[in-house]
């Protein structure tokens, strides 16, 4: 199977600062490897290994594209001028155009991000391919793509046709920092830059009317002598009826 792994396609929300008026300061944050990217990469290798295939890397935006190259991917493509967008369908359209640019592809593997939960599914919709997301892993058995997931207290194995998109959600924080040898090898591996113009996409976002902090009651916080604060909290929890 020819497998494309999509990585570093979003900014990390922990890089954002929400100001007191609710506006967001991204503080020049770049696209980073999401918490699900290592699990997606592992699944991409598993699918390729089970089918004598290859794994191609695809990233967008201004992050360091060598992330996948230093983790065993032989070739990667980067749409470096892709902006960070609110519209998940617009991000997906960029990715879909890049996947088409890579020619015949059997499986696209992508981290099933919590923050941008619409990108993996809109990517499948844009390509017109079947998809499963929220998966724990995927592999190839007897030349057929199969995926594992947890649904309603059961561990399921699902067979799906190709071409397909699979979204992997990390079960644990598994990223492994590459060693010096891998970092050096990554520099020699080909990284092809693509532009939005080359791909023929011109993404835009809906108009933003601004941000505001959600209406939420701040925590009642007790500070002071431990014995006193402990008594205050216990009293508060009793009045809530939870003690």
């Amino acid at each position: 199977m020819r497998v494309v792994v999509v990585y570093k396609w979003a900014r990390n929300p922990t890089d954002a600062l929400v100001r007191s008026d609710g506006s967001i300061d991204w503080r020049n944050a770049r696209m980073t490897a999401g918490e699900d990217d290592p699990a997606a990469l592992a699944a991409a290798f598993a699918i390729a290994a089970g089918s004598d295939g290859e794994v191609l890397g695809l990233t967008i935006g201004d992050g360091d594209a060598s992330w996948a190259l230093a983790r065993g991917v032989e070739r990667a493509w980067s749409v470096a001028d892709a902006p960070s967008l609110v519209d998940n369908a617009a991000t997906a359209a960029i990715l879909a155009a890049a996947v088409r640019h890579l020619g015949e592809v059997d499986v696209v593997v992508i981290g099933d991000s919590r923050q941008d939960a619409g990108v993996p599914v809109a990517l499948a919709g844009e390509l017109g391919w079947p998809a499963l997301v929220g998966l724990t892993s995927a592999t190839t058995v007897d030349g057929r793509l199969q995926a594992a997931r947890k649904v309603g207290g059961a561990a399921q194995t699902v067979l799906l046709p190709t071409p397909a998109v699979v979204g992997i959600a990390a079960e644990a924080d598994v990223d492994r920092a590459p060693g010096m040898k891998e970092l050096l090898a990554a520099r020699k591996r080909p990284l092809t830059r693509l532009s939005l113009a080359e791909l023929g996409v011109a993404p835009d976002d809906p108009e933003s009317l601004g941000c505001a902090k959600p209406d939420s009651t701040p925590a009642r916080v007790f500070a002071g002598e431990p014995a006193e604060t402990a008594a205050q909290l216990v009293a508060a929890l009793r009045s809530e009826g939870v003690l």
Partner: peptide, 26 residues
């Protein structure tokens, strides 16, 4: 919802209709 299956259906519809897709609407 964010349920994986419902999301896949949403993505399929959005792709076909060329709709925008905004996550986490409240």
């Amino acid at each position: 919802t964010t349920d994986p299956a419902a999301r896949v259906l949403l993505g399929a519809v959005a792709g076909r209709m060329h709709a925008r897709l905004v996550p986490a609407a409240v």
